[in-house]
């Protein structure tokens, strides 16, 4: 079997794209990558980096609440970024919260991508009834914004596990909600490119030599349509973190006893007018920095992976 009928493999493309060179050329990208790296490390090692455990109510003292950042009047050295309304150390809470946010966002987006890519490939490659059914499901899906899906799943979980506490179920509810509300974009993108790709010569050739359909889809079509997905992935990671924050604002997000970055922002939101700015500012800046950096990386990745742009 000749490989000439296949499209160039992913690795050769990355090698040919001089991805490293393009990375080193862009200062913005390097800064973004640095920020992402720092934040990811902070999140991953939060139990070791954070001075306190904000998730353990026994170590949080209400009497410590609303202390401003250390450099302000009334600030205390043990709380660098100040404390929130329950007396949690904000610096620790941000580290822990970011971890929760990234886990929720990452798992949610991964779920969305796996559903979307699978369905998109099937729809685009098989066409016909399968395509119609999948795309109509996508239509239904688009009707339900993440908020509605979260409410639905929250309700179902509550109905099924009556005694389960919100603290135990919230993460799953959020991951599934994000997964279910974001997959359509992947499916549509993949389906669109697959529709084009499947009529190309190399796919025809693969079909002629009698390769089974799943193999053609995975080995030949997928590598050629996945480019845009990487870009959507990065943007969606940011979006997922923000969706989680919004759901917290609406009261279906993570509980205030285990705050994510979004929960911290919606808590701080209440103190925006009262002068206790740090409660919303620091988590807000962290969130914005995270999403911005991830998106910038996504932009760079898109351009770098697109051979026509060089």
């Amino acid at each position: 079997m000749s490989t000439s009928s296949e499209a160039p493999s992913r690795w050769s493309r990355i090698r040919d794209s001089d991805i490293l060179a393009s990375f080193l050329k862009s200062k913005v990208t390097m800064v973004a990558a640095f920020v992402v790296l720092i934040l990811f490390i902070g999140a991953a090692f939060s139990p070791w980096l954070a001075p306190t455990n904000p998730f353990d109510p026994a170590t949080v003292f209400l009497a410590d609440s609303m202390i401003p950042p250390a450099w302000q009047d009334g600030g205390e050295a043990r709380f660098i970024l100040g404390t929130d309304d329950q007396g949690r150390d904000l610096y620790s809470a941000i580290l822990y919260g970011m971890r929760v946010s990234l886990i929720v966002g990452g798992l949610g987006v991964a779920l969305a991508a796996s559903i979307g890519i699978t369905l998109g490939l099937l729809a685009g490659y098989l066409g016909g009834r399968v395509d119609a059914v999948i795309m109509r499901i996508a239509d239904v899906q688009l009707t339900f914004p993440a908020i509605l899906i979260a409410l639905l799943i929250d309700g179902v979980v509550r109905g099924l596990f009556k005694s389960a506490s919100r603290e135990d179920t919230a993460i799953y509810v959020l991951v599934i909600s994000i997964g279910l509300s974001f997959w359509v974009q992947y499916a549509r993108t993949i389906r669109g490119s697959t529709l084009v790709e499947r009529n190309k010569d190399y796919v025809m050739a693969a079909r002629l030599v009698g390769l089974p359909a799943p193999l053609i889809m995975l080995r030949h079509v997928l590598p050629n349509v996945i480019g845009p997905v990487l870009v959507i992935l990065t943007i969606n990671l940011g979006l997922a973190v923000i969706t989680e924050a919004t759901l917290s604002f609406l009261g279906v997000g993570l509980p205030a006893t285990q705050p994510s970055l979004g929960t911290l922002i919606s808590i701080g939101n209440r103190y925006l007018f009262s002068g206790d700015w740090w409660i919303v500012a620091f988590p807000g800046i962290t969130l914005a920095a995270l999403v911005l950096a991830v998106n910038l990386l996504g932009d760079w990745l898109r351009d770098a992976l697109n051979p026509r742009l060089r």
Partner: peptide, 12 residues
Amino acid sequence: ARIGVKVNLNAQ
């Protein structure tokens, strides 16, 4: 929590 009781809070 400080007297050893762990409370699972369900605020809604």
